[in-house]
Amino acid sequence: MVITLLPLFLISAVTIGLLLRSWPILSAYSLKELLFGSIWKPSQGLFGFWPFIVGTFWVTVVGVGLAVPPCLLVSIYLAEYAHAFTRSIAKPVLDLLAAIPPVVYGVWGLLAIVPFVETFLAPFSKRWLAFLPFMAVNSPTGFSILAGGIVLAVMIAPLVISVVFEIFATVPNDLRFASLAIGATRWETIRRVVLPQVLPGIIAGIVLGASRAFGETIAVLMVVGNVPQVPGSLFDAAYPLPALIANNYGDMMSIPLYDAALLCAALILLGVILIFNIAATLVLKRFMK
């Protein structure tokens, strides 16, 4: 009996631990200064998280935005169209994608995606898309939000696909048959009968993917450039919160409040992810009954 307390205990321990250790900075600065301050100079006592929050937000949005359309289509394909044989191929592919470690994704991003952004996407955008907001090319390298987003999109794909697939599997076949029996095509059946049923679950699956992207550290850190600025374009470098923690944890001991600031960053991550996850999980549980 006692052992089932462990998961709850661990959540509280992590939350309370981070809260306690980031308390010095939370009591020294107002929340507004910390969250919306845009200058990060720990040696001068300036701890503005805004550039990092915006960076995290953009990388996540780009990653999720790139991942969602193909992932939804793939899960619908696997759930509604594919034969058992195709599914038996898809399963190991998704398992392997999920098994590849973040650092390997990072290496791939470094070797393939960053050069791709630098030599292909950036010139293309400069030539054709520069008039659009967030599409200006100011940085000479491919280390950018876009590169981080592409890597993240592939990383969260197996999670999103498998969650959405399971949701589709909860819809009883009778409903599909009822629609097909009066001569609807497969797609008409999916769009008008199945999709309205599963929409909340799909959104929950996407939120789960977003929270995975939000906290991803190593792979993103390797391709996103890590410049503490408020990015103005997808081709700018950014500095997401997880990367901030990972890059600076070694050498913060000498500066007052620096470690509290970094743990505060971890606390912000944790808070957002707890909210995302609890909401998404509650929605999904309703489906799985």
Partner: peptide, 18 residues
């Protein structure tokens, strides 16, 4: 189970910092 799902979603950098 909910707690386990939530734990599963906490990123490893947060565990590392903790």
């Amino acid at each position: 189970r909910l707690a386990l799902d939530v734990l599963w979603g906490i990123p490893s950098i947060v565990y590392g910092a903790f």
